[in-house]
Every structure is written in structure tokens, then in C-alpha cells.
Simulated assay, not measured.
Amino acid sequence: MKKLILIALVSMVAFQVSAQNSKERPNRERSPRMDKFQDLTPEEMATMQTKKMTLHLGLNESQQKEIQKINLENAIYRKAKMEARIAQRENGTMAKPTKEERLKMMNERLDKQIAMKAKMKKILNDEQFAKWEKQQQEMNRKREDMPKRGNK
């Protein structure tokens, strides 16, 4: 009887330890999503994004050229940010941002979104803009629904 109780107790402890380990995020250098875009140049990313928008919004030639320029600017900016984060992670200098730094980053992101919306309103017609805006709202909703990184 003592042996059964001991075996049950040991198995419960082992189960608890394995359950805790499965909750932890494995320590990886890069996520698979980052790997997918890591090899692309900003020009390739911009071209891919422009083609997707052309299919979704039905862009004409002049709209494609204007949006290609915007997408290239954004891709260069995102690529630089991504490489800076990777460098910080590899150097071990990545620290949790302070309240002021988070506020600055959020304001910077919102300012970029406002500028992007204004540019798109100039380029797209009313129907295309409404479709684009709806797509942006859907992407934001999905982003908010995703679990936060670092939470266990």
C-alpha cells in the first residue's frame, strides 16, 4: 500500500513538473514568422505587399506605383527595426522598456498609422479606401486577439 501511495505521489510531482515546462516558451533565437521574412529584401517585401493590395483593392497602374513607393518606405523601416531587435537580443541588451519609452513607441506607431491613412486616402478612390480601412481594422483586431509575447 505504501508503495502505491509513493508511486502515485511521485507520478503527480512528475506530471506537475512536466506541465510547468510545457507552459514555458522554448528559448529560440527567432520565431518562424521572423525567419519567413528574414531572407526577403525590403524591395521584395514591398513588391509582395503591393501585389496583394492590387489583388484585394483592384489598383490601377498609377496607384500601384504610388503604393509601391509607400510600401518600400515602410518595408525599409520595418527591416531596420527588426534587425535592431535581433541585434539587441543577441547582445543581451534587450531590456523591458520604461513607461516613457513605451509611450514614445506607441505615439510613434500611431503617428505612422495616421500618416499612412492620409497617404492612402489621397491615392485610393472612396470604395478602395473603405475596403482598405476595413482590412486594417480586421488586422488590428487579430493583432489584439493574439496572446502577448512573454506571458506564460
Rank of each mutant, 00 (worst) to 15 (best):
M1R: 08
L4W: 03
L4R: 06
L6S: 14
L6Q: 11
A8R: 01
L9A: 12
V13N: 02
A14M: 08
A14F: 13
F15A: 10
F15C: 08
Q16W: 15
S18L: 12
S18E: 13
Q20S: 13
N21G: 12
S22G: 00
E24A: 11
R25C: 01
R25S: 04
R25I: 02
E29T: 04
E29A: 04
R30T: 11
R30N: 12
S31A: 14
P32N: 08
P32I: 03
R33G: 15
D35E: 13
F37N: 07
Q38C: 15
D39E: 06
D39P: 01
T41L: 03
T41W: 01
A46N: 00
A46E: 00
M48N: 06
M48D: 09
Q49C: 07
Q49H: 14
K51M: 14
M53R: 08
T54D: 14
H56P: 08
H56D: 09
E61T: 10
Q63V: 05
K65M: 05
E66M: 12
E66A: 09
I67R: 06
Q68L: 10
Q68R: 04
K69F: 01
I70C: 00
I70Y: 07
N71M: 09
L72W: 00
E73M: 10
A75Y: 02
I76D: 07
K79G: 06
K79Q: 11
K79R: 11
A80C: 07
K81I: 11
E83W: 04
A84Q: 13
A84L: 10
I86Q: 12
I86C: 07
R89T: 14
R89W: 14
N91D: 15
M94F: 06
A95S: 08
P97S: 06
K99C: 05
K99R: 04
E101W: 00
E101A: 09
R102G: 03
L103S: 10
K104N: 06
M105G: 02
M106R: 11
E108C: 02
R109N: 05
R109K: 00
R109S: 04
L110F: 06
L110N: 05
I114K: 05
A115T: 02
M116N: 07
K122F: 03
K122W: 03
I123K: 03
I123L: 01
L124D: 05
L124T: 04
Q128M: 00
K131S: 01
K131I: 07
Q135K: 06
Q135L: 12
E138W: 12
N140A: 12
N140E: 14
R141I: 13
K142Q: 09
R143L: 15
R143M: 15
E144N: 10
E144A: 07
E144G: 10
D145P: 13
P147E: 05
K148R: 14
N151W: 11
N151V: 15
N151G: 13
K152M: 13
K152N: 10
